[in-house]
Design a protein around this nucleic acid. Structure first.
Lengths: 155, 155
DNA sequence: GCAAATTAATGATTTATTCAAG
DNA sequence: CTTGAATAAATCATTAATTTGC
Protein backbone atom coordinates (compact mmCIF):
# COMPACT_ATOMS: atom_id res chain seq x y z
CA UNK A 1 0.00 0.00 0.00
CA UNK A 2 2.33 2.71 1.13
CA UNK A 3 4.94 3.22 -1.44
CA UNK A 4 8.41 2.36 -2.33
CA UNK A 5 10.73 0.72 0.01
CA UNK A 6 14.33 0.42 -0.82
CA UNK A 7 14.85 -2.63 -2.91
CA UNK A 8 18.12 -4.41 -2.88
CA UNK A 9 19.06 -5.60 -6.28
CA UNK A 10 20.97 -8.78 -6.71
CA UNK A 11 23.90 -6.87 -8.06
CA UNK A 12 24.32 -5.36 -4.69
CA UNK A 13 23.10 -1.85 -5.17
CA UNK A 14 20.19 -0.67 -3.20
CA UNK A 15 17.65 1.11 -5.18
CA UNK A 16 15.16 3.30 -3.50
CA UNK A 17 12.15 3.72 -5.64
CA UNK A 18 10.75 7.10 -6.00
CA UNK A 19 8.04 8.27 -3.77
CA UNK A 20 4.81 6.57 -4.52
CA UNK A 21 1.99 8.47 -2.95
CA UNK A 22 -0.90 6.64 -1.46
CA UNK A 23 -4.36 7.43 -2.60
CA UNK A 24 -5.00 9.31 0.58
CA UNK A 25 -1.93 11.40 0.13
CA UNK A 26 -2.89 12.22 -3.40
CA UNK A 27 -6.35 13.05 -2.35
CA UNK A 28 -5.24 15.46 0.30
CA UNK A 29 -2.75 17.09 -2.00
CA UNK A 30 -5.33 17.41 -4.70
CA UNK A 31 -7.79 18.91 -2.29
CA UNK A 32 -5.24 21.43 -1.23
CA UNK A 33 -4.51 22.22 -4.82
CA UNK A 34 -8.13 22.65 -5.62
CA UNK A 35 -8.54 24.86 -2.67
CA UNK A 36 -6.18 27.25 -4.28
CA UNK A 37 -2.81 26.25 -3.01
CA UNK A 38 -0.20 26.38 -5.72
CA UNK A 39 3.17 27.18 -4.31
CA UNK A 40 3.26 26.23 -0.67
CA UNK A 41 5.80 27.91 1.51
CA UNK A 42 8.45 25.96 3.30
CA UNK A 43 6.38 26.16 6.37
CA UNK A 44 3.33 24.88 4.66
CA UNK A 45 5.27 22.13 2.99
CA UNK A 46 6.56 20.91 6.28
CA UNK A 47 3.15 20.89 7.81
CA UNK A 48 1.68 19.07 4.88
CA UNK A 49 4.44 16.56 4.87
CA UNK A 50 4.00 16.00 8.55
CA UNK A 51 0.37 15.29 8.18
CA UNK A 52 0.75 13.11 5.17
CA UNK A 53 3.46 11.05 6.75
CA UNK A 54 0.70 9.44 8.67
CA UNK A 55 -0.49 7.79 5.52
CA UNK A 56 2.85 6.57 4.44
CA UNK A 57 6.41 7.39 3.71
CA UNK A 58 6.88 10.89 2.50
CA UNK A 59 9.38 13.68 2.58
CA UNK A 60 9.04 17.39 2.33
CA UNK A 61 10.60 17.45 -1.06
CA UNK A 62 7.93 15.11 -2.29
CA UNK A 63 5.35 17.67 -1.43
CA UNK A 64 7.34 20.38 -3.03
CA UNK A 65 7.78 18.42 -6.22
CA UNK A 66 4.20 17.34 -6.24
CA UNK A 67 2.98 20.91 -6.33
CA UNK A 68 5.55 21.88 -8.88
CA UNK A 69 4.62 19.04 -11.14
CA UNK A 70 0.94 19.22 -10.65
CA UNK A 71 0.82 22.89 -11.39
CA UNK A 72 2.96 22.51 -14.45
CA UNK A 73 1.02 19.61 -15.78
CA UNK A 74 -2.30 21.21 -15.31
CA UNK A 75 -1.07 24.14 -17.29
CA UNK A 76 0.37 21.87 -19.91
CA UNK A 77 -2.87 20.05 -20.16
CA UNK A 78 -4.67 23.28 -20.79
CA UNK A 79 -2.14 24.36 -23.28
CA UNK A 80 -2.16 21.18 -25.19
CA UNK A 81 -5.75 21.78 -25.96
CA UNK A 82 -4.84 24.68 -28.14
CA UNK A 83 -1.83 23.20 -29.79
CA UNK A 84 -2.01 19.50 -29.70
CA UNK A 85 -4.29 17.43 -31.76
CA UNK A 86 -1.87 14.85 -32.75
CA UNK A 87 0.10 14.99 -35.91
CA UNK A 88 -1.97 17.67 -37.50
CA UNK A 89 -1.42 21.20 -36.52
CA UNK A 90 -4.61 22.84 -37.49
CA UNK A 91 -5.38 24.40 -34.19
CA UNK A 92 -8.24 26.68 -34.98
CA UNK A 93 -10.95 27.82 -32.77
CA UNK A 94 -11.91 25.52 -30.06
CA UNK A 95 -15.22 24.07 -29.40
CA UNK A 96 -17.74 26.11 -27.68
CA UNK A 97 -20.07 25.14 -25.00
CA UNK A 98 -22.89 23.02 -26.14
CA UNK A 99 -25.41 25.76 -26.08
CA UNK A 100 -23.82 27.92 -28.66
CA UNK A 101 -23.12 25.13 -30.98
CA UNK A 102 -25.07 26.46 -33.87
CA UNK A 103 -23.64 29.83 -33.39
CA UNK A 104 -20.14 28.62 -33.23
CA UNK A 105 -20.40 26.50 -36.25
CA UNK A 106 -21.77 29.36 -38.14
CA UNK A 107 -18.85 31.40 -37.11
CA UNK A 108 -16.41 28.87 -38.29
CA UNK A 109 -18.26 28.25 -41.46
CA UNK A 110 -16.56 30.87 -43.58
CA UNK A 111 -13.36 29.16 -42.79
CA UNK A 112 -13.76 26.77 -45.59
CA UNK A 113 -10.20 26.87 -46.67
CA UNK A 114 -8.55 23.71 -47.73
CA UNK A 115 -6.45 21.85 -45.35
CA UNK A 116 -4.02 19.88 -47.31
CA UNK A 117 -2.02 18.74 -44.39
CA UNK A 118 -4.97 17.32 -42.71
CA UNK A 119 -5.40 13.81 -43.76
CA UNK A 120 -8.43 13.55 -41.70
CA UNK A 121 -9.51 10.17 -42.77
CA UNK A 122 -6.78 7.63 -42.76
CA UNK A 123 -9.55 5.45 -43.80
CA UNK A 124 -9.95 3.53 -46.86
CA UNK A 125 -13.43 2.94 -45.85
CA UNK A 126 -14.53 5.21 -48.56
CA UNK A 127 -13.31 2.78 -51.08
CA UNK A 128 -16.66 1.34 -50.96
CA UNK A 129 -18.03 4.27 -52.78
CA UNK A 130 -15.19 5.68 -54.74
CA UNK A 131 -15.42 9.19 -55.98
CA UNK A 132 -13.42 9.88 -52.93
CA UNK A 133 -10.08 10.12 -54.56
CA UNK A 134 -8.87 12.25 -51.76
CA UNK A 135 -5.23 12.54 -52.33
CA UNK A 136 -4.95 14.53 -49.22
CA UNK A 137 -7.04 17.34 -50.44
CA UNK A 138 -10.56 18.22 -49.88
CA UNK A 139 -13.33 15.80 -49.96
CA UNK A 140 -15.56 15.58 -52.93
CA UNK A 141 -18.72 14.13 -51.75
CA UNK A 142 -21.08 16.15 -53.77
CA UNK A 143 -21.75 13.38 -56.14
CA UNK A 144 -23.48 10.65 -54.37
CA UNK A 145 -24.39 12.59 -51.36
CA UNK A 146 -26.95 15.15 -50.71
CA UNK A 147 -25.46 18.48 -49.89
CA UNK A 148 -24.09 18.45 -46.45
CA UNK A 149 -26.54 19.50 -43.94
CA UNK A 150 -24.53 21.00 -41.21
CA UNK A 151 -27.37 23.09 -40.13
CA UNK A 152 -27.83 22.41 -36.57
CA UNK A 153 -31.40 22.31 -35.74
CA UNK A 154 -31.15 22.52 -32.09
CA UNK A 155 -33.90 21.06 -30.05
CA UNK B 1 -30.94 0.60 -40.18
CA UNK B 2 -29.72 3.86 -38.90
CA UNK B 3 -31.79 4.65 -35.94
CA UNK B 4 -33.69 7.55 -34.55
CA UNK B 5 -36.02 9.11 -36.97
CA UNK B 6 -37.97 12.10 -36.03
CA UNK B 7 -41.34 10.88 -35.08
CA UNK B 8 -44.19 13.16 -35.67
CA UNK B 9 -46.82 12.88 -33.06
CA UNK B 10 -50.38 13.52 -33.95
CA UNK B 11 -50.43 16.50 -31.69
CA UNK B 12 -47.99 18.18 -33.97
CA UNK B 13 -44.83 17.96 -31.95
CA UNK B 14 -41.90 16.20 -33.44
CA UNK B 15 -39.78 14.07 -31.27
CA UNK B 16 -36.31 13.18 -32.36
CA UNK B 17 -34.55 10.42 -30.60
CA UNK B 18 -30.93 10.75 -29.89
CA UNK B 19 -28.35 10.06 -32.49
CA UNK B 20 -27.75 6.43 -33.01
CA UNK B 21 -24.53 5.93 -34.91
CA UNK B 22 -24.24 3.28 -37.55
CA UNK B 23 -21.54 0.71 -37.27
CA UNK B 24 -19.65 2.40 -40.06
CA UNK B 25 -19.79 5.73 -38.32
CA UNK B 26 -18.56 4.19 -35.14
CA UNK B 27 -15.81 2.44 -36.95
CA UNK B 28 -14.56 5.64 -38.53
CA UNK B 29 -14.77 7.55 -35.31
CA UNK B 30 -12.95 4.83 -33.49
CA UNK B 31 -10.25 4.75 -36.13
CA UNK B 32 -9.76 8.45 -35.80
CA UNK B 33 -9.57 8.12 -32.09
CA UNK B 34 -7.12 5.30 -32.32
CA UNK B 35 -5.01 7.28 -34.69
CA UNK B 36 -4.64 9.86 -31.99
CA UNK B 37 -7.43 12.32 -32.42
CA UNK B 38 -8.88 13.38 -29.12
CA UNK B 39 -10.30 16.85 -29.27
CA UNK B 40 -11.03 17.73 -32.86
CA UNK B 41 -11.32 21.35 -33.76
CA UNK B 42 -14.50 22.80 -35.05
CA UNK B 43 -13.17 22.49 -38.50
CA UNK B 44 -12.26 18.90 -38.07
CA UNK B 45 -15.59 18.14 -36.56
CA UNK B 46 -17.41 19.55 -39.49
CA UNK B 47 -15.35 17.58 -41.93
CA UNK B 48 -15.82 14.42 -39.99
CA UNK B 49 -19.48 15.03 -39.72
CA UNK B 50 -19.70 15.70 -43.40
CA UNK B 51 -18.02 12.50 -44.25
CA UNK B 52 -20.00 10.45 -41.83
CA UNK B 53 -23.24 11.85 -43.05
CA UNK B 54 -22.85 9.52 -45.95
CA UNK B 55 -23.47 6.63 -43.65
CA UNK B 56 -26.47 8.10 -42.02
CA UNK B 57 -27.92 10.97 -40.20
CA UNK B 58 -25.45 12.84 -38.11
CA UNK B 59 -24.74 16.30 -36.85
CA UNK B 60 -21.58 18.05 -35.86
CA UNK B 61 -22.51 18.06 -32.26
CA UNK B 62 -22.80 14.30 -32.35
CA UNK B 63 -19.19 14.10 -33.35
CA UNK B 64 -18.23 16.53 -30.67
CA UNK B 65 -20.08 14.57 -28.02
CA UNK B 66 -18.73 11.31 -29.27
CA UNK B 67 -15.15 12.40 -28.78
CA UNK B 68 -15.87 13.89 -25.42
CA UNK B 69 -17.54 10.77 -24.20
CA UNK B 70 -15.14 8.36 -25.74
CA UNK B 71 -12.15 10.13 -24.37
CA UNK B 72 -13.63 10.34 -20.93
CA UNK B 73 -14.71 6.74 -20.89
CA UNK B 74 -11.47 5.42 -22.18
CA UNK B 75 -9.81 7.27 -19.38
CA UNK B 76 -12.21 5.78 -16.92
CA UNK B 77 -11.46 2.34 -18.17
CA UNK B 78 -7.78 2.81 -17.76
CA UNK B 79 -8.20 4.17 -14.33
CA UNK B 80 -10.10 1.16 -13.24
CA UNK B 81 -7.07 -0.86 -14.06
CA UNK B 82 -4.50 1.17 -12.27
CA UNK B 83 -6.55 1.61 -9.17
CA UNK B 84 -4.07 2.58 -6.53
CA UNK B 85 -2.03 4.68 -8.81
CA UNK B 86 -4.61 7.28 -9.58
CA UNK B 87 -4.25 9.71 -12.36
CA UNK B 88 -1.30 11.42 -10.88
CA UNK B 89 1.33 9.02 -11.86
CA UNK B 90 3.74 11.70 -10.90
CA UNK B 91 6.55 10.84 -13.12
CA UNK B 92 9.24 12.83 -11.56
CA UNK B 93 12.16 11.85 -13.61
CA UNK B 94 14.54 14.27 -12.10
CA UNK B 95 13.45 13.52 -8.64
CA UNK B 96 16.95 12.57 -7.76
CA UNK B 97 18.03 14.64 -4.87
CA UNK B 98 20.77 16.22 -6.78
CA UNK B 99 19.77 19.47 -5.36
CA UNK B 100 19.66 19.77 -1.70
CA UNK B 101 16.39 20.45 -0.22
CA UNK B 102 17.59 23.42 1.71
CA UNK B 103 18.26 25.26 -1.43
CA UNK B 104 14.87 24.64 -2.79
CA UNK B 105 13.15 25.63 0.35
CA UNK B 106 15.04 28.81 0.45
CA UNK B 107 13.83 29.60 -2.96
CA UNK B 108 10.28 29.10 -2.11
CA UNK B 109 10.50 30.88 1.13
CA UNK B 110 9.88 34.37 -0.11
CA UNK B 111 6.64 33.10 -1.39
CA UNK B 112 5.28 33.40 2.05
CA UNK B 113 2.83 35.95 0.92
CA UNK B 114 0.88 33.37 -0.91
CA UNK B 115 -2.64 32.91 0.19
CA UNK B 116 -2.65 34.32 3.57
CA UNK B 117 -6.26 33.49 3.69
CA UNK B 118 -5.49 29.91 3.35
CA UNK B 119 -4.92 28.63 6.77
CA UNK B 120 -3.04 25.52 6.20
CA UNK B 121 -3.31 22.91 8.79
CA UNK B 122 -4.25 24.57 11.99
CA UNK B 123 -2.05 22.12 13.72
CA UNK B 124 -2.53 23.92 16.90
CA UNK B 125 -6.07 22.79 16.94
CA UNK B 126 -5.43 19.37 15.73
CA UNK B 127 -7.43 17.87 18.44
CA UNK B 128 -9.56 20.61 19.68
CA UNK B 129 -11.53 21.54 16.70
CA UNK B 130 -14.79 23.00 17.67
CA UNK B 131 -16.53 25.55 15.63
CA UNK B 132 -14.80 26.60 12.50
CA UNK B 133 -17.94 26.45 10.56
CA UNK B 134 -18.29 29.76 8.92
CA UNK B 135 -15.47 29.96 6.49
CA UNK B 136 -14.07 26.56 6.80
CA UNK B 137 -14.15 23.67 4.51
CA UNK B 138 -13.64 20.46 6.28
CA UNK B 139 -12.40 17.45 4.55
CA UNK B 140 -13.62 14.41 6.24
CA UNK B 141 -11.75 11.40 5.15
CA UNK B 142 -14.02 8.63 5.99
CA UNK B 143 -12.05 5.79 4.72
CA UNK B 144 -10.59 2.86 6.43
CA UNK B 145 -7.97 5.09 7.84
CA UNK B 146 -7.56 6.95 11.03
CA UNK B 147 -9.11 10.33 10.80
CA UNK B 148 -6.71 12.92 9.72
CA UNK B 149 -9.07 15.68 9.61
CA UNK B 150 -7.57 18.57 7.88
CA UNK B 151 -9.22 21.84 7.63
CA UNK B 152 -8.80 24.46 5.10
CA UNK B 153 -10.07 27.80 5.96
CA UNK B 154 -10.25 29.92 2.97
CA UNK B 155 -12.03 32.88 1.62
C1' DG C 1 -39.68 -17.71 -30.11
C1' DC C 2 -41.48 -13.31 -28.04
C1' DA C 3 -42.11 -9.48 -25.39
C1' DA C 4 -41.97 -7.50 -20.72
C1' DA C 5 -38.53 -6.55 -17.41
C1' DT C 6 -34.01 -5.61 -16.26
C1' DT C 7 -29.34 -4.26 -17.08
C1' DA C 8 -25.49 -2.35 -19.76
C1' DA C 9 -23.92 1.29 -23.12
C1' DT C 10 -23.58 5.45 -24.48
C1' DG C 11 -25.57 9.95 -26.25
C1' DA C 12 -26.49 14.55 -24.24
C1' DT C 13 -26.47 18.01 -20.25
C1' DT C 14 -24.90 20.07 -16.42
C1' DT C 15 -21.32 21.29 -13.13
C1' DA C 16 -16.66 22.29 -11.45
C1' DT C 17 -11.99 22.80 -12.55
C1' DT C 18 -8.09 25.38 -14.50
C1' DC C 19 -5.44 29.13 -16.56
C1' DA C 20 -4.90 33.65 -17.65
C1' DA C 21 -6.78 38.18 -19.67
C1' DG C 22 -8.59 42.49 -17.96
C1' DC D 1 -9.95 39.73 -7.93
C1' DT D 2 -13.06 38.95 -11.55
C1' DT D 3 -14.32 36.70 -15.46
C1' DG D 4 -13.88 34.38 -20.20
C1' DA D 5 -12.42 30.10 -22.57
C1' DA D 6 -12.45 25.63 -22.67
C1' DT D 7 -12.73 21.56 -21.06
C1' DA D 8 -13.25 17.13 -18.15
C1' DA D 9 -15.91 15.11 -14.50
C1' DA D 10 -20.24 13.95 -13.04
C1' DT D 11 -24.64 13.18 -14.07
C1' DC D 12 -28.97 12.55 -16.51
C1' DA D 13 -31.57 10.11 -20.04
C1' DT D 14 -32.50 7.02 -23.79
C1' DT D 15 -31.41 3.38 -26.48
C1' DA D 16 -29.52 -1.54 -27.18
C1' DA D 17 -28.65 -5.93 -25.00
C1' DT D 18 -29.85 -9.32 -22.11
C1' DT D 19 -32.61 -12.05 -19.16
C1' DT D 20 -36.72 -14.13 -17.88
C1' DG D 21 -41.44 -16.19 -17.76
C1' DC D 22 -44.49 -17.96 -20.57
Amino acid sequence: MSGSFCIKSSSGGTKCGRWNPTTEQVRVLTDLFRSGLRTPSTDQIQKISSQLSFYGKIESKNVFYWFQNHKARERQKRRRVSVDDIDHSLREEKMASTKNWGEITRVTEPDQRVIETLQLFPLNSFDEHKEMKTTTTTFAYTIDHPPLDLRLSFM
